[in-house]
């Protein structure tokens, strides 16, 4: 099956001059994993993921042990957010990324995601215009659709806070 048949087309987009706080608000929503930075013709320039935003806040020297020695982490985080507030998407975005074309097969996307550990891959046309994205969830849903033995209604969410 072509990736164009099962890709998501509702994506979070941002311009290169979009500031850090706006990016944070765009990605903070539970559904999207990343924001796509595009020009006025929707040509993909870069990607900003939740991880990229976190990396900006957490200094390169910080590790879990040093973080434990802090008693006032709220103050520390506030200070860090202040430091990065003037950064914009073009400073943070990753410009080297793997991508798929709409005619690629889903199995190829599956293999690429499994091999390289990606969560999401953008789908671009030949001119680099963003058309959609393929996520691990897309592939799993496709797998469920193609196997009659599975029943999507089998899922059950347990609210642990009530236990």
């Amino acid at each position: 099956m072509d990736v164009s048949k099962c890709m998501w087309t509702k994506l979070v987009l941002a311009k290169p001059d979009c500031d850090y706080k706006s990016l944070l608000c765009k990605i903070a929503d539970p559904t999207p994993r990343q924001a796509y930075i595009v020009d006025e013709n929707y040509k993909l320039l870069g990607i900003v993921s939740a991880m990229d935003l976190l990396k900006e806040i957490i200094p390169s020297y910080m590790n879990a042990d040093l973080a434990r020695s802090l008693t006032d982490e709220a103050d520390f985080l506030q200070k860090q957010v202040e430091k990065v507030k003037d950064k914009c998407a073009r400073d943070i975005m990753v410009t080297k990324f793997a991508y798929l074309h709409p005619y690629h097969q889903l199995l190829e996307a599956d293999a690429l995601i499994a091999e390289r550990g990606f969560n999401t891959l953008p789908v671009l046309d030949e001119q680099g215009k963003l058309l959609g994205e393929i996520t691990r969830r897309n592939i799993l849903l496709q797998l469920v659709d193609s196997c009659t033995a599975f029943n999507l209604n089998d899922k059950e969410l347990v609210d642990l806070s009530l236990l």
């Binding site: 042990d65 020695s69 802090l70 006032d72």
Partner: peptide, 13 residues
């Protein structure tokens, strides 16, 4: 004062 609040014991793994 910030330095004085740091917990060095947390570093010993």
């Amino acid at each position: 004062k910030r330095i004085m609040t740091l917990q060095e014991r947390e570093q010993i793994k």
